[in-house]
Amino acid sequence: MFGPTARTVQDQLVERRVRVGLGLVTAVLVLPVVLILGVLVVKGGPMISMEFLFSDPTNGMTEGGIFPALIGTVWLVGFALLFSVPVGIAAALYLSEYAPDNWVTRAINLAIINLAGVPSIVHALFGLGAFVLFAGFGTSILAASLTLAVMTLPVVIVATRESLQAVPMEFREACWSMGATRWQTIWRIVLPNSITGILTGVILEVSRTAGETAPIMFTGAAFFLPFLPESVWDQTMAMSLHLFVVSTQVPDVPEALPYGVALVMILMVLTMNALSIGFRMWLRGRRKW
């Protein structure tokens, strides 16, 4: 008598179908990650060896290893961080600790959104025009790193701003009321309590920077250069460009070689991401307040 009406039965049916349908959609979206990783491991896995990682490419890049590209990427990422982390932290500090609610602040926020949205190839053009030609750095690690730094700056800014804003306002007020200047408050209270969050953002940036190709193509990365860089004025090989080159530009490359390069790259990037995610979860568990 008082059982569910036809109407509610129908509703529940719809509900279940929607849930299953959306679940399937989500699965379709995330399945490629698993598939891609699987194929790369199966096809590229056999390539990976100490020799592959630590020797130079030989025989027109159809044999040998990836050492100069690996080291080149480390140089590029390292110098990019050197520029982007201080600037990014300063920008985030301004937005979180100083920025009044005015048009300058709105313009800054809009600029950051845009900086993140500018196509990577346009960053490459900018790097070429500004750093290689105008500043006269030539095609060099310096020019390429600066280009990468500009491109990934928004990552640092957004992550840093978020972790700065997570520090409760009361801490700042308590510190100010003791006569601490804004800077003393930032240095002694705000930064120490957000540094781990900032690091998470930096690791994420490392992973993004390491994978970029277009911005370094014309600013400092070379197709083939079996020497290790000695200064920021040198050109260098890089993992990302190396993958592009061996998979599209070089004839007669054995099939497994680019898979090996791709696998090393993705492992590099995913390790960084995993670190960043793990760090974040660990952080969530040990808030001091």
Partner: peptide
């Protein structure tokens, strides 16, 4: 989803 976002564009191209 975060891993999906992390795959570099040159790997996608490959």
């Amino acid at each position: 989803i975060e891993m999906l976002a992390a795959i570099p564009s040159v790997v996608w191209g490959f």
